[in-house]
Design a protein around this nucleic acid. Structure first.
Lengths: 253, 253
DNA sequence: CATAAACCTTTACGCAACGTCAAGGTCAAG
DNA sequence: CTTGACCTTGACGTTGCGTAAAGGTTTATG
């Protein structure tokens, strides 16, 4: 099957302009040009475009995509790894920004006057974090969004204290995961403490606890991408490490 | 105190060019221009710059900042609220991208084949309906031929068939959930089929299966927002319905 | 078969928020 | 008085296209 620009464009969801641009920069040349100067794309180009769009969707620059798809021996794994790190930074920056925006909204609505200095401190990377905690605490106390979460928790039949403990435990688990992971050994004291805390955490939401269920859940963590993404966010490979630690803790395997 | 461009620049951490640009677009004019044409900034401008940088750090466009700081009656709270929503979308997109990058890295390193469907899931939404299916078929045909890659998949422990079956089962469960939910009754045949399929699905990733573990997981679904979000995406209230169905299926409660 | 509608081409400016020369004037110090 | 640091105004480059504009080609229809 052969396609002209706009046919391919409609098919792939990009614009005709985009295809011409890709031709121009040498990213995707048509299979041939017909007698009237029309660009004609074939099956090979369709496949290539898919690849391109795939990487583009991952936020890789066209220049980098060029390397990835045109160089056969290119180490795309490493390239993606680097790209991943960049994305992580981007997200953590986004998170900080969002926190500050939240606080700003709260301060406006709550009628709290933000001192100019405080505002200025906001964009001095390091200060922002210190400030965030103190400042954020005040706000949260008065108009906190956590209240919503808290009340939701109550509705679910959980006491305020339980909720606090659960939240804290969750944070501790994340911290411990990072620390334990660094020992590299799921038999280590840290890893076993991690597993124990994880059990503790589980028992808040499970009506009945059993080793089997715990082990099953640990396996689930590794198999289910939602969990893998969650625990690997703290540290890469953390999910598997957590599972191993739990298995040893439970005396299995 | 008075400052020239670069003095102010150094103080605030921006470049001289940035200040000239802000002057150019009317965002921040110097207090005055001296006899030699130098820009001279005063205290008022320092304060304004701080405001500007504050909002800039929040990723607000210069155009919007202009409105925020130049219009006294501007509803900055609402503006920030809107901005916050944008940031949220941005982050959720980032999260998706990161998950896919992770998967891609894993697939390269582990030799797992990512299904084309998976790869295209991200921008599938943009595809025009009519062409989507035909196009998808082409892709599937092409990758069906790649036996080399298929054999790599086995390295990971899960066969291609298993993987396909698992994926398909997951989709079926989602469909069934919607259908069963509409009966309104977790005792209904549909709901019980749903629970059965869910067990089947579980057994792909669990080495040992037990009623307790299954029940525990079902509870977990409701308690854990990640799961709630996931199953409620198919249909609101779906998570609870799934749990109820499973409980009945298991003869509990 | 003529003509309009639809589709193709290249050229080129526009966008956001500056970075980065370039060419040249100004000021403080040695 | 010269040197070097600092200031000025252009003006082009960046990224990935969107959006005309001006004009040639193909297809459908009356």
């Amino acid at each position: 099957m052969e396609y002209t620009v706009n046919k391919l464009a409609r098919m792939s969801g990009v614009s005709g302009r985009t295809l011409r641009y890709y031709d121009q920069i040498g990213l995707l040349k048509p299979a041939r040009i017909n007698s009237s100067g029309y660009r004609i794309y074939g099956q090979k180009e369709v496949d290539l475009l898919q690849q391109i769009l795939f990487y583009r969707e991952l936020d890789v620059s066209l220049e980098d995509i060029m390397e990835i798809i045109h160089q056969p021996n290119f180490d795309s794994s490493q390239a993606l790894q680097q790209h991943y790190e960049k994305l992580k930074e981007k997200r953590s920056r986004l998170d900080k920004i969002m926190a500050t925006v939240e606080k700003t909204i709260a301060s406006i609505e709550g009628g709290i006057i933000m001192q100019d200095q405080e505002k200025f401190e906001g964009f001095k990377e390091q200060l922002i974090e210190d400030n965030e905690q103190e400042f954020g605490k005040e706000i949260r106390e008065k108009y906190g969004e956590k209240k919503v979460e808290e009340s939701n928790a109550k509705l679910r039949g959980m006491s305020q204290e339980d909720y606090n403990a659960l939240t804290k435990l969750g944070e501790e688990i994340m911290e411990l995961l990072v620390k334990a992971y660094k020992t590299g050994d799921p038999h280590s004291a840290e890893a076993q403490e991690l597993a124990a805390k994880h059990k503790e955490w589980l028992m808040y939401s499970w009506s009945t606890y059993s080793k089997e269920a715990h082990a099953g859940l640990a396996e689930m963590y590794v198999a289910d991408e939602r969990f893998t993404a969650f625990y690997d966010k703290a540290i890469k490979g953390g999910t598997k490490f957590l599972r191993d630690s739990i298995m040893i803790y439970l005396g299995l395997e």
